[in-house]
Design a protein around this nucleic acid. Structure first.
Lengths: 218, 218, 218, 218
DNA sequence: GGATAACCGAGACGGTACGTCTTGTCTTAAA
DNA sequence: TTTAAGACAAGACGTACCGTCTCGGTTATCC
């Protein structure tokens, strides 16, 4: 998903040949050239991710990212229009690993998915990053926009679970996919936002049972 | 509702006798005494609320609140330990008016409650304030703590709906109140955070139907 | 000298009878009555002097003096109109101990006096206090006024040395006392202000010899 | 005179090429680059000088200087480490115009110099600035250090007068230049600090006569 | 001998300034 | 022409004092 970072510029060839000689500068990275430097972009995203992991959203500033990446602030602002865009790209880099196993029932699949997402957010930087994006979206219109479109993209992971259920004939004829997806993501967001991402098996099972009961045919 | 605002001091008598003579100062507000000045506190909370309404969370700063309230910054920091505490008090002042009418069925009650909360957040400053608190909680531990305890307090409003249903004998014996409340509030939070608080009757009904089906006995 | 502190009030009897019962307050000092409390005044002056000794002029604030004295700020402002007045009173409390011995010659007396004043300023808080007063006088008109009148009072100590010389017949008939006193105090002030109060015997002797040669008859 | 202002950075080329286009900002000043902006430094020093002239040392604050200069506070703190450093640079900018005319005698030269310095301090901002520096030095160690080294630099102006006298053969063989310079500057400082800089010809002549008598050979 | 008036401590108040931090724009020099 | 570097204006941050004002409480004096 979204493996092309949000570029305000048309589309540059990002791959640049390796530098011939090392600079005396911070990391061996050669500075500049007429194309966008993939090395720089990577360094910036790495720095952003690390910083977020270490200092949290509170300590996350463009200033610090630039310093840590050995990049100039204008370089960041040239390619991302603010914190939010940067955060989104960082989130997009996270490899979403969900153990989307087919347990045979909607209820089982749902519980499994909750566990999976919960673990993903808990054990990778993704959770903190996503929290930050939501927070940023509350004051930054562009972040809100990004968050919304982002939502649509991630939707299909959960949707797949219900598609399987539909294929099995489990679902009621009046099943409303959109609302159901909102329920699932809302439930997860709330846990994320109050930092209650523990592996609450009982709660997840309870959730899954209830949702499954609500949407399956009798 | 949170009728004890987050006061760092034990409990002061906030009511002060009427000022004898007017100060030459800005407003007619009399300045100071060894007790907390209710007038100041009110002016600050009013200013905070207005500022949030006008400039949003992005433009909300202690500096501006102080200026607008005609108060000194130290006065704010004396009684609230940061943005979050101030926001919480502002939220606590909002009169939660929910048309909690008994429609006779759980489904009806649920749909009604969603409408009611949605309208409350949409048509009063409360929604924006609450969004701000959630955002603040992502970087400020104290705000997170406040948000959590806050959650517990508001919980009973939704719980009441389910208690009525239980009294009617609608509920399944395995009904899990906590999880269900999390579902409801999660659904509402998500709508609030992506600013999709429109009066989505169809969606609310769909949600209510599904939840009701999931928890009622067959 | 100046043993009546700069009182803005007409003239109260400062001595108060001993309190009958101790207050639960800080130091057992009883609080108030319709007369000025000598105990409070002393506590304030003590605190001011100690604070100046410990934290220097930079750390000297009415706030701290009040806290340390266990006094209310208004009590300080009631009896002194600012830092400067307080400092002056503190300086006035310093017992000026000058070994004003008659060496038989103007030159000897002068050198002796320089040593004496220098040691006084160096070994008691007086030097730091006086420095503070001069500093304060640069921004506070009232302090300037006080400094000027103060100057007049202290003048006679040095004048006495020259009076003795005149009595001995050492002085030239065109001797200008005022200018000479300005020279002596200026010399000492400059040393004080750049904190070069070491016991510079050679310098003092050189000064004394030169001044004496300048004013004695040939 | 102190032509190298107290720069914390080694030595930057302060001159920058002319701006191509005007900024929308306050004045027509173009904004910055990786070198120190001379325009900003000048604006800050101008503002500091004007502010000191208008509001005096009491009203002199970094805050006000920044506002008046249209500069950011961090810009000031980047190049000067506090009030004192700024004041010193402002003083260093004052063109010391002393009518150092050779009157033929030490006494005449001295009187002339006193008049000259007195007028300089009285009729230019220099006097007020210098008073402020002395005051600042009483609470700020760095200012004290600066004041001391400053002293050394300015010393030779007065020294020149005595050098001329020595060349004329006026001086006694035991003449002590250091002490004498301390006397002269002490006399002037004291007058400055109690704001008695009037053109006291009589006093100056008296001073000059006495000093001259003290150091000339018989 | 009870009322009164001035003192006292405490500390909240509106302000101003402090020195630091971050933001987003701009300029330079190197590559 | 992009880059790293970093100066810049702007302004918020949270803290320290300023000098004023109110509070209750205490106590010496005067009716």
């Amino acid at each position: 998903m979204n493996d092309a970072p949000a570029e305000p510029r048309p589309a540059l060839r990002d791959d640049r040949s390796e530098p011939g000689t090392a600079r005396p500068g911070a990391a061996g990275r050669t500075s500049a050239g007429p194309r966008r430097s993939k090395a720089s972009a990577d360094a910036i995203l790495d720095a952003a991710q690390d910083l977020l992991a270490e200092a949290g959203y509170a300590g996350f500033s463009i200033e610090q990212v630039a310093k840590r990446a050995g990049a100039g602030k204008p370089t960041i602002y040239r390619w991302w229009n603010g914190k939010a865009a940067l955060l989104l790209d960082v989130y997009a880099r996270q490899k979403l690993v969900l153990t989307d196993d087919d347990t045979g029932t909607l209820e089982g699949d749902l519980a499994s998915m909750l566990c999976s997402v919960s673990r993903f957010w808990r054990e990778t930087p993704a959770g903190d990053i996503f929290r930050s994006i939501i927070a940023e979206a509350q004051s930054e219109p562009s972040a809100l926009e990004a968050l919304r479109s982002f939502l649509g993209e991630r939707r299909h992971h959960v949707a797949a679970v219900f598609e399987r259920a539909r294929a099995r004939g489990e679902l009621d004829e009046g099943f409303d996919l959109d609302t159901t997806l909102d329920i699932v993501s809302g439930f997860l967001w709330a846990r994320l936002l109050v930092r209650r991402l523990d592996d609450d098996l009982e709660g997840f099972n309870s959730f899954a049972r209830q949702i499954a009961r609500g949407v399956t045919r009798r």
